[in-house]
Design a protein around this nucleic acid. Structure first.
Lengths: 140, 140
DNA sequence: CATCAATACTTGTATATACAAATAAAACAC
DNA sequence: GTGTTTTATTTGTATATACAAGTATTGATG
């Protein structure tokens, strides 16, 4: 069934959720080569680009709750991709050598993801949509 | 932090997820008066409007997996708002009288939700955005 | 008509995320 | 410099959803 066939599809609640689920799925596909979910992968990229970054900063950048960041970091730590060093009330997150070696592969996944949806939606429209969604999210 | 301040915010993955989370929150607020999550409430409204509807149909209309529909129905059953009658391999879902009495309240919540986001985004833009998101989701 | 395939739904389990409370350190206030 | 407030992070627990496997019924095929 197309979205447009559903009676409740005019509702922002459904549109945004359904879209997010479909995008999530597409993204998961793109990040399979590195065996990470998109969230983990993005967090890891930030850590590689900005070593010693703190969980609070990650939460703000990724727009996720601090508790969620803790959970993401935990999993990356298990995989020996990051490590945490706590000093006082702050914690610094560092990439391991293993993670740094993965960097170009991670970038390739970002690229694959972008390419795959740009191919479906058109480069132009794809970018416009993202801009609009950000604008909308900022207002809410 | 605004979405636009984050480096990774140009990524469709983030935009769509962040937007969905914010919309979800707004929606939850709107449905608090009936003590249901938006998903449960929408499912219930469909059941009231279309008694004897089957889980498979609900899954298609709400764009959720059948297993998710089962879980939603279970919770509504606990709350004595719907009941399931299985005949052969098919199952029919019916609203209870208690649910039917709630109908106008449910509608009021839909309305409150629409009003609250239309107030922030503008009626015009709000509708346009939904249309675009559906179009995009259908293509993916 | 006996088996095999398809359909409809449920169950077990996993993931992504959140909220609220807990902990711990730092900053402030007097 | 002791007591209180604020900040940073983690932990316990809950919700929303999915996937894969299981069950049960119906339909199709030889």
């Amino acid at each position: 069934m197309n979205t447009s066939e559903s009676k409740y599809s005019q509702c922002l609640y459904f549109s945004s959720n359904a879209l997010a689920r479909k995008v999530e799925k597409l993204a998961q596909e793109s990040w399979k080569p590195v065996g990470l979910s998109p969230s983990h992968a993005y967090l890891l990229m930030i850590v590689i680009e900005d070593p010693a970054v703190q969980p609070g900063t990650l939460a703000r950048e990724l727009q996720l709750q601090p508790s969620t960041i803790t959970r993401l970091i935990e999993k990356l730590e298990e995989k020996k991709l990051v490590l945490r060093i706590t000093e006082g009330k702050a914690t610094n997150v560092y990439p391991t050598p293993r993670a740094k070696e993965m960097y170009s592969k991670l970038k390739a996944c970002v690229n694959h993801f972008y390419t795959s949806h740009a191919a479906i939606l058109g480069k132009e429209e794809s970018t416009k949509m993202v801009r609009n969604m950000n604008k909308l999210a900022d207002k809410l």
